[in-house]
């Protein structure tokens, strides 16, 4: 087992690097010393049960939460305690697909998709609309969808719009938070295909969290497993079935018996 990059043979400095990242909420320790490297162009998926700290890890990297200890590097520059304009500048490198899509209810679809262009990059509304419609096309949505509001879309369409919003600014790094949660198996596969295609087209680095193993296998180059705030296994996707790790084996086979005991209460 290795906690360092080893999977896809990508060379050079890591795109994202975490060293000893810790985060607790009161007495509840959520992240307990995370060390992880994500290499440029790589797609890493973090798996783990509910409440193991996957979302907290993503939020720490994005700066939505500040770690209690440890350091986070993006493109070799430390971003752990950045705020204000410096944080906004770092976030321009990112795109994010949220679990529930997190589309802005009060804005039409095209404005949701073009939001990062208009607000983050100062692109004019007319040009942003054209680019938003083109991006909607890339995720398989017709131009007519552009003027609808998020509440008029199905769950699968909302995910596609969320994906379009994540890639519209052509970011270097894309995060996917439970991209297939709440979708039927066919739509899940459609979203997985779109994720693979979009990441490949952009040449982006992708970091995803999920507990859907079908999705994890399809979209990842490497998989890391998080349990009780620590990474218990990191390795290439092709090796996950012969990891020899009891936590990984229990998780990927969905067994109730094993070293992972489900918590009934969050705290």
């Amino acid at each position: 087992m290795s906690l360092e990059s080893s999977g896809n043979g990508a060379a050079g400095a890591p795109k994202i690097s975490l060293r000893g990242v810790k985060k607790a909420f009161g007495p509840k320790v959520v992240l307990n010393g995370i060390d992880l490297d994500v290499m440029p162009g790589e797609s890493l998926v973090i798996i783990g049960g509910s409440g193991t700290g996957k979302s907290v890890l993503l939020k720490c990297i994005l700066g939505l939460l500040e770690p209690d200890a440890g350091r986070i590097f993006i493109d070799g520059e430390e971003t752990t305690h950045l705020h204000g304009r410096e944080r906004e500048a770092v976030l321009r490198k990112f795109g994010m697909l949220f679990q529930g899509a997190a589309l802005f209810d009060s804005l039409p679809v095209w404005e949701n998709v073009g939001f990062g262009l208009i607000q983050g990059q100062g692109v004019g509304r007319r040009e942003a609309r054209e680019r938003a419609i083109a991006t909607l096309g890339a995720v398989g949505l017709a131009p007519e969808v552009a003027d609808l509001f998020p509440s008029e879309l199905s769950g699968g369409m909302q995910k596609r719009v969320g994906l379009a919003r994540a890639i519209c600014t052509r970011p270097d790094i894309i995060f996917f938070d439970e991209p297939t949660t709440g979708l039927d198996p066919i739509m899940s596969d459609v979203i997985n295909d779109l994720i693979v295609q979009c990441v490949k087209d952009l040449g982006a680095t992708a970091l995803s969290i999920t507990h859907d193993m079908a999705s994890a296998r399809k979209i990842s180059d490497r998989i890391a497993m998080l349990h009780k705030g620590q990474l218990v296994w990191v390795g290439p996707t092709a090796e996950i079935d012969r990891s020899g790790n009891a936590f990984v084996d229990q998780f990927i086979h969905g067994r109730a018996d094993g070293p992972i005991q489900m918590q009934i209460r969050a705290f």
Binding site: K59, L62, G63, L64, E88, A89, L91, R92, F94, G95, M96, F98, Q99, G100, A102, L103, F104, D105, F115, G116, Q119, G120, R165
Partner: peptide
């Protein structure tokens, strides 16, 4: 907006 992560989404969109 807070509980549906729209506020977090704003932040990730550099706003």
């Amino acid at each position: 907006m807070r509980v549906t992560e729209q506020v977090d989404a704003l932040t990730t969109l550099s706003t």
